[in-house]
């Protein structure tokens, strides 16, 4: 029998893939303003490869952490670029965070978010305020930790995470890029939403839908 946790993670990647591919055009538009206009294409390609690999996998033999690990490798191989190593590290850190779990309770879900954020920080040697995906991921991780500390239910925790990530992403409009291709634009990057932060919100939204579905 496939464990509920494993099924949920597979479901989560399906939702992420659908959501990212639905927003592909908008993400690439955002990237066109300050980068090389391929962020949507890259993310959609990566997560489509993940769902394809998962559809071929024998889920009964897998723990949730195995699914995250598979997703990490597949995403990296399909994408390269900077998002490849960043999300591959995020996903393999997530795998470690839930290693041994069969089900993903609210605590495990919170740990997923914090592990992903810290994986991206480690690989990209980045921090908040640099107009990157971390401006969504770091506030999301902090919201998850706060919700855990006060013993919040899943629905409550995820709406906090989403609100924090969204506010963080919106704040990138007022930032000057300190990393990536947009760095070269200097103050010309002002006023533009960072595409990596925007896609982080889409991913977190799909995670919320997964873990709060009845």
């Amino acid at each position: 029998m496939t464990t509920r946790g494993t099924q949920q993670v597979v479901d989560m990647f399906q939702r992420i893939s659908l959501a990212v591919s639905a927003e592909k055009g908008r993400l690439s538009e955002l990237d066109g303003a300050i980068g090389d206009a391929d962020h949507g294409i890259t993310m959609a390609r990566g997560f489509a490869a993940v769902t394809k690999a998962l559809s071929a996998a024998d889920l009964q033999a897998l723990f949730p952490s195995d699914v995250f690990r598979m997703a990490a490798t597949t995403f990296l191989d399909a994408v390269g670029a900077s998002t490849g190593p960043l999300y591959a590290t995020a996903l393999s850190d997530a795998a470690q965070a839930v290693s041994g779990h069969r089900d993903l309770d609210t605590t495990a879900q919170a740990e997923l978010v914090t592990a992903m954020a810290s994986g991206i920080m480690r690989r990209g040697k980045g921090d908040r305020g640099e107009k990157t995906m971390l401006d969504a991921w770091i506030p999301a991780a902090e919201a998850a930790a706060r919700a855990q500390a006060r013993g919040a239910q899943a629905g409550d925790m995820w709406s906090d995470i989403l609100a924090a990530a969204t506010a963080g992403a919106d704040a990138t409009r007022s930032m000057i890029a300190a990393r990536g291709r947009a760095l070269r634009l200097g103050e010309r990057s002002l006023g533009h939403l960072d595409p990596g932060a925007a896609s982080a919100v889409i991913i977190l939204e799909a995670m919320r839908e997964t873990f709060t579905a009845a």
Binding site: I41, R45, L76, D77, A78, V79, G80, A81, G84, P85
Partner: peptide, 11 residues
């Protein structure tokens, strides 16, 4: 060789 304007992965 990577995708268009994207670094190849480590593989």
């Amino acid at each position: 060789i990577g995708n268009v304007f994207s670094s190849p992965p480590p593989g």
